[in-house]
């Protein structure tokens, strides 16, 4: 009988499908739902230190599904989730309590998520999350909603180092989709991070041509969706081949096929969110069922059998089979001469 169980950062999880940090993981009520639907774990919404208090206040409205055809009832294959919702809305202590309750009412993996800028704040948040009982911590250094640029700034090196030194639970680092994800993943690996999450959403902007204003809150927002998966596929493949680090993939998963592709490219777990927003919590169950039926059909006992297979099949550019573009120089044969 095939199983979806995977070994992830030293834990045995029931499914490789995780709920990504966001609106589907901001409340304790959502944890039992995720568990019931068969998620392997949940990455909780990101917490920020008091210094970034303003990030706990959210604009209204802040979500827009661009190109989403709601009359198709969830069958749109391409859409953009355009949103600006920054951090967990409660205080830091509320968050630690949230982690503690989430852990006590479920037996799935609970991953805390944090963002800060000073190493002391990073350590404070990371230690609190560890003490509250989280199974791991994700350092959200690349959220499209964070202040400042999305570059891998030098102070993050210090931050990752100090968190890794100060907590015993596994540390994941969520990386931006660019530039140079490979180098960032190498640095994370050298600094002792246990895993990387590839990749966060992009920061984008949409405007209204009638008024000439940026839509919704009037500022940049996070953009993602099913179209975003192809560049993450490439990043996952690249990091899987070059860096010895666990990968949790996220970005544009709409169905079990996308999840399986991430696993075939080398990801241990797959985080989903946009699909939960548009198609509901049942998406987790449907993805699990799809993976299981594929495994049953192909007689795959364990996902380890297919993990990384596509990345290993990737060929070097100098081994690509090529043919000449033009058979001979000069004008092409006309149709009559064939």
């Amino acid at each position: 009988m095939p199983t979806l169980e995977v070994e992830f950062l030293g834990y045995r999880v029931k499914s490789p499908i995780f709920v990504a940090s966001g609106p589907a993981s901001h409340d304790v009520k959502q944890i039992p739902i995720a568990q019931e639907m068969g998620a392997g774990g949940v990455v909780l919404k990101t917490v920020v230190p008091d210094k970034f208090d303003y990030m706990r206040y959210w604009p209204r409205p802040r979500y827009k599904l661009i190109d989403w055809d709601k009359k198709m009832n969830g069958k749109s294959q391409y859409f953009t989730l355009y949103s600006y919702e920054q951090a967990y809305s409660g205080s830091v202590d509320d968050y630690f309590n949230f982690v503690k309750i989430s852990k006590s009412i479920s037996d799935i993996m609970i991953i805390g998520s944090a963002f800060a800028d000073e190493p002391s704040d990073w350590i404070y948040l990371a230690k609190g999350i560890e003490e509250a009982g989280a199974d791991a911590i994700e350092l959200d250094i690349s959220s499209p909603h964070k202040p400042g640029t999305l570059q891998f700034e030098t102070h993050f090196v210090q931050a990752i180092k100090s968190v890794v030194e100060n907590v015993k639970i596994p540390v994941l680092v969520k990386l931006a989709p660019g530039p140079d994800v490979l180098t960032q993943a190498k640095i994370c690996s050298e600094l002792g991070a246990d895993a990387v999450t590839l990749c966060n959403r992009l920061r984008g902007l949409e405007i209204d041509i009638e008024t000439g204003k940026p839509i919704l809150h009037g500022y940049y927002a996070g953009v993602g969706g099913p179209w975003a998966k192809y560049y993450v596929f490439k990043h996952v493949s690249e990091v899987y081949k070059e860096v010895n680090i666990t990968i949790s993939a996220t970005g544009g998963v709409l169905n079990w096929v996308d999840a399986l592709k991430y696993i075939m490219l080398g990801a241990k777990t797959v985080q989903i969110l946009s699909v939960i927003i548009v198609n509901g919590w049942g998406s987790i169950r449907r993805i699990n069922e799809g993976l299981l039926s594929f495994m049953l059909e192909r007689q795959i006992e364990n996902l380890e059998e297919v993990r990384g297979i596509a990345s290993r099949n990737l060929i070097e550019p100098d081994l690509i089979v090529r043919w000449t573009g033009e058979k001979k120089s000069g004008p092409r044969n006309t149709f009559e001469e064939w």
Binding site: P59, R60, P61, Y63, K64, L65, W68, E206, E210, L216
Partner: peptide, 22 residues
Amino acid sequence: MGKYIGLKPLPPDFYDKYPPVA
């Protein structure tokens, strides 16, 4: 194209005075 389905692209007029709810 260019037509938004669902939510209007800009928030309601009063969004800076009272919090909008649905």
